[in-house]
Design a protein around this nucleic acid. Structure first.
Lengths: 110, 110
DNA sequence: TAAGCATATAAATGATAATTTATATGCTTA
DNA sequence: TAAGCATATAAATTATCATTTATATGCTTA
């Protein structure tokens, strides 16, 4: 768990923030981008090359990830580098993956 | 973290499962439903009453949550009870909430 | 078996979002 | 300053999804 003594309590009334975050994580291509830059900042063209997706599509998703505050941007000459704003997003991604795989495995077993 | 020695490794190629799970968690009303049944199974009408949403909308979201394997169903007479399939989804929800609130707080600070 | 409640389902609608295609912007170098 | 590369943006298209409205199904009880 990220937080054993959470400072932010969840209320049935206000779940906008986690829902918004989950929406950012709900697209497979965006998850691939997050993993792709998880160890070091990378330029758009490097990401395009690695993930084999079109440049406008990558740019679109990067814009979305920036809007959700998940990545930060930095220009260096003609290149623009994207970097994780907080690497703990990878832990969350791993938790989602483990939990989802677990659900699927159980469905197959029982 | 859910898993310090994860059995399921993440690959940039296959992130369908976590993306699908995140999509289930990306709607505020579905999160409200999950929290609403987090302590005990509840009937559809009980959920409708608590969350003040229309019955067809609640049924629709419950169907979606069932499809994602997040809830299980049980009929008792005329009532149909929904229950969390795995309560650890609440930990994940809390992590999402904490992380999201953290991002927002930082944006306001810096 | 008719009536009534609990829930599901179907159809229609409106909104949002992913992707593609085309074009613009901005930096660098000759 | 023209040419070229890196990236962003805009427009068009298609797909997905939340919500509403209307209706059907299934259980129970009189």
């Amino acid at each position: 768990m990220l937080n054993k003594n959470p400072k932010n309590y969840m209320h049935v009334e206000n779940l906008q923030a986690p829902a918004f975050l989950a929406k950012s994580l709900s697209d497979e291509n965006r998850l691939r981008i997050l993993l792709c830059i998880s160890h070091k900042k990378k330029s758009v063209s490097a990401i395009v090359e690695e993930l084999q997706l079109s440049q406008p599509l990558i740019s679109h998703h990067l814009k979305e990830l920036k809007r959700s505050l998940l990545v930060t941007v930095e220009r260096n000459g003609p290149f623009i580098y994207y970097e994780l704003a907080d690497k703990r997003i990878i832990d969350i991604l791993r938790d989602l993956n483990d939990f989802a795989m677990n659900l699927l495995a159980r469905r197959k077993t029982f």
